[in-house]
Structure formats: C-alpha cells, structure tokens
C-alpha cells in the first residue's frame, strides 16, 4: 500500500489571474491550446502518467484560481505537495511582482518540513505575445529573482505555441522527486537513497 501511494506526485500551480495556469496545464496534459478557456473557479486538477528513470508516476496537477480571495478557502490541498509551480506573465510586471506573495503564501499554507529547500519551479509564460515586443519582464530579472530564492529553476514558456512546456514539466517531475526524502512516512529506506542522489544532481543543474 505504501508503495502505491509513493507513485503519486502532487504539483500545485500558482500565479496571478490570467497568466495562463490553466493553459499550461492543458498544453502539457492534453497537448492542446484554446484561447477560449473559462476563468477557473476555486481549483481543478488533472492527472498524467509520467515515466522517470524507469519508474512510473501519476502526476496530479492542481490548477488554482488566480483571484486572491480564493486563497481563503482552497488552501488545504497545498499540504502534501511535492512541487510548487509559480507562473507569471512576461508581459505583466504586476504578475511578476506578486511572485513573492504567492511563494510565501504557499510556504505558510503548505508548511513543508524544510521550507528553505522546498522545490519551486518558475515559468515566465506568454513569450509568444506580440512577437515578444510587449514584454516587460526581462529574462535577466526573472533569473535574478530565482537566484535570490535558492536557485529556483526557470523556464520561459508559451502555452499557446507549446514552447518549453514539456521541458518545464520534466524539470517539475524531477524536482518533485527531489522532495521525496522529507516524507518519511512511506518507504523511508528506498526514498532516502534515491532522494539523496537526486538532490546532488539537480543542485548542479539549477
């Protein structure tokens, strides 16, 4: 039973309203983009089977509503998350400025055992818009923020054109697995070994 449980990886997507959280999730899971998404109310989730280093996992991706007040109810599902994906729109400075709030809110609500090393991944979405001409947040600025938060991996994505989406989610899976040793409730022995190796590997890549 414990081993069955371990194959589930829970990922939470957070970010301002309209930055493309739902679109990114759908592009990754269904390989589709629609410019007719409805505003997300509360939260929604999709699952996808993924293979990583000969192990099969079920990735459970939680898509959240961007409007702040939904924070007051739907936050219990943050707990037990293996990775948190922060999304901003490269064409909106405000959505970038709010990343600190999203990160802090997540750490408060999810209260992971080791908040300093909890895996986050940052996605700068909508790089396709207007051929990049309406962009207001530079890659350099985003990377500087990532560096200041303990080397968060960063990807520039377009959910519309499918740019970097697959790559980003592979990194998300990898980082979610990095979180394994902290959950000693299930299969602690196996987890320690795998997690230890991976921890070293990814600190180099970030």
């Amino acid at each position: 039973m414990a081993s069955r449980r371990r194959t589930l990886l829970k990922v939470i997507i957070l970010g301002d309203s309209g930055v493309g959280k739902t679109s990114l999730m759908n592009q990754y899971v269904n390989k589709k983009f629609s410019n007719q998404y409805k505003a997300t109310i509360g939260a929604d989730f999709l699952t996808k089977e993924v293979q990583f280093e000969d192990r099969l996992f079920t990735l459970q991706i939680w898509d959240t509503a961007g409007q702040e007040r939904f924070q007051s109810l739907g936050v219990a599902f943050y707990r037990g998350a293996d990775c948190c994906v922060l999304v901003y729109d490269v064409n909106s400075m405000k959505s970038f400025d709010n990343l600190n709030n999203w990160r802090e809110e997540f750490l408060i609500q999810a209260s992971p055992s080791d908040p300093d090393n909890f895996p986050f991944v940052l996605l700068g979405n909508k790089v396709d818009v207007d051929g990049g001409n309406s962009r207001v947040v530079s890659e350099k600025k985003a990377k500087a923020w990532c560096a200041s938060k303990g080397n968060i991996p960063y990807f520039e994505t377009s959910a519309k054109d499918g740019i970097n989406v697959e790559e980003a989610f592979q990194c998300i899976v990898k980082n979610a697995l990095k979180n394994e040793p902290e959950e000693e409730l299930y299969m602690p022995d196996t987890v320690d070994v795998v997690g230890g190796n991976r921890g070293q590997g990814s600190s180099g890549c970030c």
């Binding site: 109310i41 509360g42 939260a43 929604d44 109810l73 739907g74 219990a76 599902f77």
Partner: peptide, 10 residues
C-alpha cells in the same frame, strides 16, 4: 471540499 467547493461556488 476540494471536489465540491467549485461546484457550489459556480
């Protein structure tokens, strides 16, 4: 509530 919350809210 994770499942039914959005049902009620919408």
């Amino acid at each position: 509530a994770w499942v039914t919350g959005p049902w009620f809210l919408s």
